[in-house]
Design a protein around this nucleic acid. Structure first.
Length: 584
RNA sequence: GCCAGGGUAGCUUAGCUGGUUAAAGCAGCGGUUUUGUAAACCGCAGAGCGUGAGUUCGAACCUCACCCCUGGCUCCA
């Protein structure tokens, strides 16, 4: 039975064969199977987007001749001879040679003269009979993109051709349909349609301007985090946007992220200053400003300040990657014996928040990259200790998690919450990070029970990450149909005709007095059109008022899921208020 | 930053092998209508075709530079 991965990998070979026929100068490099199909990287600049149809055709033409794979093991010298002129393949051969692994060449297909077909350096993993095993219409070339050789931007950029491939044509079509669905939910599109935020070339890229409607959502998100912070006994602080470079030199951010910080200058003093890219160093200064006793710990600060990062232009994307954004940030300074309860309380709060937002998630335990320790601050012992504490905690709590090497922050390991949205895409949101490094660098201390001075531990955490980014995710998760508590307009009162405008205004006034975000649509349009507009805007409640309702002081309630009939205004207010309070 | 696409009215799009006043729908505005659960009718206005240079008798269309957006790569405290 041919596995999907084998099919995909086989298609990568087929693609390389097609490229070899149509673009003989393109040097093949590597071509693995991926989640949705396959890709192959070529050293060439001849392949553009519009080359794809011809390549696709060529692949389809070649496929019937690919009835088997033959392979042979060769010496490094033979392999080098075969791939002479291809420095990329030579580099791979050298590596195989050094590791003492077998070097194999795989061949499939046939040339017009009947001689052997396309041969590639490969360790295997193909379907036995591509012509038979690969269903017609189950694959398509998708797009062309640049990709650095071996994933390093120091290396040459190659041309990557992506292909989609599934077991059947139906599965490919389903994937394409799902991609269409994702496009419909695109937060950039919905944010524009609903007038939630805008960007301006004059303000700058990556710097969102929230409209009154968008800011309502943003504030509700912050409001929930603030409420959870109070339950967790955090004290909210307020800190400035501009900081001296010295602060970041001590924290270690200067060395690591100077290129990604926006600098600011003063006309009067020479200090190198930066817009702050994070809050942690500042919070250490609030801690440091007063003598602290073991009895005072844990000390917890929360902060919603706007942060600035000089992201490279090509990395910006809607609300998911911004130059200016905030975090629902918080830092805990505690004793070692308090780590466990602090981390588990924060995790519980995160879980509570995600339940309210109806978001599924999984946890990623992000560890240091053991092969690149230079990227991180602090000694091996400290890292081992921090990672052990966190792992033990996750195991004790019986939390399902996946370990991920190389995903830690530069100062410590972290637990990242990976949200899974309504159509299955993952977003990294919340985080809890254990830091044994920064407090020492800032000379933070507390007086222990025995009178000695000790260094506190610092826990960095964000409940939902960035309110701005999270809002982008929520837009896509809900496809713009926000639950009532988040909806910028919770209720819209539609008058049947202009005769009923006064009553509609009255109802809106009552709703507003009850704290409900309501407006009227008393435009000179038919009711049908107003309903349509309200539904398109995804307003949670549409209240229709006409002669009957004016007469009986009622409203006819239409929700996104259907009609609730005619109820007294007071009853509707009660119902809506309960929803909002319960964050439904 | 790098690779590949793209930028026409507030929005969605047409026009683009160079050739009169750049064409629609929605939204907007003005009328008519006074409407009962997903688009009433008529009219009006709205576009320096991303920006700046160039080629040409003539540029939305060709060339160059820059800006911005999209998809990747790299990065993500």
């Amino acid at each position: 039975m041919a596995s999907l991965e084998e099919k995909r990998h086989t298609l990568a070979h087929l693609l390389a064969a097609a490229v070899k026929n149509l673009h003989p100068d393109a040097l093949p490099t590597i071509g693995p199977a991926i989640d949705t199909g396959f890709y192959y990287d070529f050293d060439t600049n001849a392949i553009k987007e519009d080359s794809l149809p011809a390549l696709q055709k060529e692949m389809e033409k070649l496929l019937p001749d690919w009835t088997e794979f033959t392979h042979k093991e060769v010496s490094a010298a033979e392999a080098r001879e075969f791939f002479k002129g291809n420095t990329f393949k030579k580099e791979l051969i050298e590596e195989l040679e050094q590791k003492g692994e077998a070097i194999t060449l795989y061949t499939s297909g046939r040339l017009p003269d009947g001689s052997q077909g396309f041969t590639d350096l490969c360790r295997g993993g193909h379907v036995e009979n591509p012509a038979k095993n690969i269903a017609p219409g189950s694959f398509m070339l998708d797009k062309v993109a640049g990709a650095y050789w071996r994933g390093s931007e120091k290396n040459k950029m190659l041309t990557r051709v992506y292909g989609l491939a599934f077991d059947t044509k139906e599965e490919l079509d389903a994937y394409l349909a799902q991609r269409e669905e994702a496009k419909k939910r695109d937060h950039r599109k919905i944010a524009r349609e609903q007038g939630l935020l805008v960007f301006s070339d004059l303000v700058g890229s990556g710097m969102p301007l929230f409209t009154p409607k968008g800011n309502i959502i943003r504030n509700e998100i912050i409001g929930l985090s603030r409420e959870l912070n109070i339950e967790l006994d955090f004290g909210e602080v307020h800190t400035p946007n501009v900081n001296k470079g010295e602060l970041f030199k001590i924290s270690g951010h200067y060395d690591k992220y100077k290129e990604d910080m926006l600098s600011v200058s003063s006309q009067y003093v020479d200090d190198e200053m930066f817009l702050k890219p994070m809050n942690c160093p500042q919070h250490t200064q609030i801690y440091a400003a007063f003598p602290r006793s073991y009895r005072d710990l844990p000390i917890r600060f929360s902060d919603f300040a706007v942060l600035y990062r000089d992201e490279r232009p090509g990395e910006l994307s809607g609300l998911t990657r911004l130059r200016s954004f905030s975090q629902d940030d918080g830092h805990i300074f505690c004793r070692e014996d308090q780590i466990e309860s602090e981390v588990s309380n924060v995790l519980a709060a995160i879980q509570k928040a995600l339940k309210i937002y109806k978001i599924d998630y999984w946890m990623r335990f992000s560890l240091r990259d053991p092969n690149n320790k230079a990227k991180y601050l602090g000694s091996d012992e400290v890292w081992e200790k921090a990672q052990d504490i966190m792992r033990r905690l996750l195991l004790e709590k019986k939390i399902n998690f996946k370990e991920a090497e190389g995903e830690a922050a530069f100062y410590g390991p972290k637990i990242d919450i990976m949200a899974v949205d309504a159509i299955g895409r993952e977003w990294q949101i919340s985080t809890v990070q254990l830091d044994f490094n920064m407090p020492g660098r800032f000379g933070l201390e507390y007086t222990a029970e025995d009178g000695s001075k000790k260094t506190p531990v610092m826990i960095h955490r964000a409940l939902i990450g960035s309110p701005d980014r999270f809002m982008g995710m929520l837009i896509e998760h809900y496809a713009g149909a926000f639950p009532t508590w988040l909806a910028p307009v919770q209720v819209k009162v539609l008058s049947v005709s202009e005769k009923h405008s006064d009553y509609a205004q009255e109802v809106v006034a009552e709703l507003k007095a009850a704290g409900i975000r309501a407006e009227t649509d008393d435009s000179n349009e038919t009711l049908g059109k107003k309903i349509r507009a309200g539904k398109t805007e995804k307003i949670p409640y549409l209240l229709v008022v006409g002669d009957k309702e004016v007469e009986s002081k009622t409203v006819s309630v239409e929700t996104r899921d259907g009609s609730l009939g005619t109820v007294a205004v007071a009853d509707f207010i009660q119902r809506a208020t309960e929803d909002i309070k319960a964050r439904k």
